[in-house]
Simulated assay, not measured.
Amino acid sequence: MSDRTFIRHVVFFSAVDENDVVRIVDGLSLLRNIPHASVFEVVQNSRVDQLSREIDVVVYAEFEDDAALTAYKAHPIYQQAIDIVRPLREMRIAADF
């Protein structure tokens, strides 16, 4: 077990159409305007790993605690990003640890 005091939030996305990957990155990049994350990144998968090529975009964020993560998800910009990205994505997998 880790004695780290923050929460890592990692979300993986795949695009329905590979031509929409940049639009997904742009939509998810809106999330960096939400003030609750201490670290926030949106990146296109470099696909270096030849065994797993399903993921197109990754969101990585760190939050001080559960309250900060909850506040992030409750922010109006979060819903705005969902409205942009949901129709463009095939898969979304999230992990918080």
Score class of each variant (00 low, 15 high):
Asp20Leu: 04
Gly27Lys: 01
Glu62Gly: 11
Arg89Thr: 14
Val10Cys: 11
Asp49Tyr: 03
Ile82Met: 08
Glu41Ser: 03
Asp65His: 00
Asn45Asp: 13
Arg8Pro: 05
Ile55Tyr: 10
Ile7Tyr: 03
Ser52Lys: 02
Phe13Val: 12
Val16Pro: 08
Glu90Val: 06
Phe6Pro: 04
Phe97Cys: 15
Val85Phe: 10
Ala95Tyr: 08
Arg53Val: 15
Phe13Cys: 09
Val48Ala: 05
Glu54Tyr: 05
Val25Leu: 04
Arg92Cys: 04
Val25Glu: 14
Glu18Met: 00
Glu62Gln: 03
Ile77Gln: 10
Val11Cys: 10
Ala15Val: 15
Val25Asn: 13
Arg8Tyr: 01
Ile24Ser: 13
Ser52Arg: 05
Ser46Cys: 05
Asn19Phe: 01
Asp96Glu: 06
Pro35Thr: 15
Lys73Trp: 03
Ala37Glu: 13
Ile7Phe: 02
Leu88Asn: 14
Leu31Cys: 08
Leu51Cys: 09
Ala61Gly: 03
Pro35Met: 11
Arg53Gln: 07
Lys73Arg: 04
Ala71Tyr: 08
Arg32Pro: 04
Ala95Pro: 07
Val58Gly: 09
Arg23Asp: 15
Pro76Trp: 12
Tyr78Lys: 07
Glu18His: 12
Asn19His: 12
Ile77Gly: 07
Phe63Asn: 07
Leu69Gly: 14
Leu31Gln: 11
Met91Ala: 08
Ala61His: 02
Val11Asp: 14
Val85Glu: 14
Thr70Val: 08
Leu69Arg: 02
Glu41Met: 04
Tyr72Ile: 14
Ile82His: 10
Arg23Val: 07
Phe40Tyr: 13
Gln44Glu: 14
